[in-house]
Write a protein that binds this DNA or RNA. Structure first.
Lengths: 129, 129
DNA sequence: GCTTGACTTGGAGTGCGCTCGAACCCGTAG
DNA sequence: CTACGGGTTCGAGCGCACTCCAAGTCAAGC
């Protein structure tokens, strides 16, 4: 698979894919005879997982560290697991925080809605008596 | 309340508070005779709310817009409400996505844990006949 | 009167995460 | 043979959100 094809399938731009490789999030891609990147389909799963780590706010340092451990391969599983476990805890806390924020948001929106309703009521009865 | 005091109470640095004022997230603070910022306690609630908007990932443009509407005061409630409602929808989607990611994370961690367990079992019975 | 410490401004610097442009190379279809 | 639609590298630029530094002002305590 060429980089354009991978871009389409992964939802990232070719620029971003090269950038990810440069900084070490993606492994060095194999090249065809002409020196062009030629990807194995398996990289899609890795990109998707990276996307999840990013969507949950894992800082780039940790993503780089996880990617490096993955590159190293066998023997790094305990570190990878520890990394993911710490991240999971942070994500859980984050989700809880966001849910608390949602309540606040609901309250605020409710207050605006109420105020608006009162305005309408006033318009409906311009002369109360 | 002086900026140092506000920094302590709000959890933001004095640098950040001045920065927020500069870009328009915080209203221009009143000044004392010597030209120093002298805050009203009410700004704490606003800072806390801004923090929630930020924690839920509202982009700075929208936070600036909301702050500007708030500055303008009366008459801008419908726009503020619309802004918050759009944001609430995005946050809900975000929370759902993060929860889905948590499941993936759990699965992955579980797989690492299992692999580790198998390793230990092997160590415990080095000669399984 | 002098030191200390909190404040002031303006502007530079930082880290993240892309995003884009320039200039070039290469294989294939017409 | 040439035009095109890919690909390549390198490096600059950008938007966010601070963060910090330098150089100065000012009020209060010793």
């Amino acid at each position: 698979m060429k980089i354009g094809e991978l871009a389409k399938r992964s939802g990232l731009s070719a620029h971003t894919l090269r950038y990810y490789e440069r900084i070490g999030l993606l492994p060095q891609a194999d090249r065809d005879a002409a020196g062009r990147r030629d990807y194995d389909a398996s990289v899609l799963a890795w990109i998707a997982f990276l996307g999840r780590l990013k969507a949950t706010g894992m800082p780039i340092r940790d993503r780089l560290r996880y990617a490096a451990l993955r590159e190293q391969g066998a023997g790094t599983e305990p570190q990878r697991r520890a990394l993911l476990e710490r991240h999971r805890d942070r994500v859980r806390a984050q989700v809880a925080e966001q849910q608390a924020c949602l309540l606040v948001l609901d309250t605020k929106i409710g207050a605006y809605a109420e105020a608006e309703q009162r305005m309408k009521d006033n318009d409906a009865q311009p002369n109360p008596n």
